[in-house]
Design a protein around this nucleic acid. Structure first.
Lengths: 156, 156
DNA sequence: TTACTTGCAAATGATTTGCACGTAT
DNA sequence: ATACGTGCAAATCATTTGCAAGTAA
């Protein structure tokens, strides 16, 4: 692990600890492990997939899925993680401090592809100011069928 | 109700009936009423809100919520309706053949302004196809502070 | 010590499913 | 007549919550 990554993780951890202290909450191994696992794995996790990975990685901690849910909610309220939801397949979480990007989501298998597009962001600013709004953030998710799912549909 | 609306509805209905026939499914009052209610009300429905409106509008049919779910799934698979996920507020359905609109949302007072922007939609198509996706829908919400709220903040 | 946190299991809420009866074709 | 569709209630799935025991501060 490089120094840069450690610095990033350390600052995340400090933010998390500060937040806990401010709210009279305690810093626990379980909470740390949730944050660390999100940080070490560049994926979009469902609560269950995160729970399974944590169980596998830290079997001695015997973390319960309820704690994963509780910690994800805490982290999301504090804007340390964000979630995206796609239909009935559920909700997925990722760290919020990644460089800004939007999501392309397969309605069929749940695959998520990240993208970034400056032209669209410029247009969004134009639309907002045309309507008298001062833009603070946005949510853009494109839903479709990915290459693989298009193929498997044809095979049926 | 104008002729134009009737023609639109009739063509929708024909599409639905064709689809049912094609799959050896039957055209029933309940299925018709789900489509008609979506058509007559320019809203985003949760399965439950749609169910409640149908019960209120056609009490004699005694439609069950399971049928609303079943019909929405059927209509969605057939691309007659699409669903959009509004964050934690759940999943909402609307007719797929309406012109797509997006939302500009004031974080301060909740004002919602609808807009439509062809340039962005074109870019979205480009992004999707560049990633091998066949685009079916999108969710774009711009969050900000509206004109009025900007003024009243200054007054404070 | 004393709150807060945990894992567990039970509870909840949304959606789906099995079944016997009803209905469109 | 024969599937298929329906409402109902029970089942399921993801998520939340109550509780007694454990742990950070």
């Amino acid at each position: 692990m490089s120094n840069i990554e450690n610095i990033e993780y350390d600052s995340l951890l400090i933010r998390f600890k500060d937040l806990l202290k401010h709210n009279n909450l305690k810093f626990t191994k379980q909470r740390e492990v949730v944050l660390k696992t999100l940080y070490n794995n560049d994926e979009h996790f469902t609560p269950e997939s995160l729970y399974l990975l944590i169980k596998e990685t830290y079997p001695e901690l015997n973390v319960g899925i309820a704690t994963v849910y509780r910690t994800l909610n805490l982290l999301e309220e504090s804007s340390i993680v964000t979630s995206i939801s796609f239909g009935s397949a559920g909700k997925k979480y990722e760290l919020a401090n990644k460089p800004h990007h939007d999501h392309l989501i397969c309605k069929c298998c749940g695959l998520i592809v990240e993208f970034e597009n400056g032209d669209i962001e410029t247009k969004q600013e134009e639309i907002a100011s045309k309507n008298g709004f001062k833009l603070t953030s946005h949510l853009m998710q494109l839903y479709g069928i990915c290459e693989n799912c298009q193929k498997s549909r044809k095979n049926k």
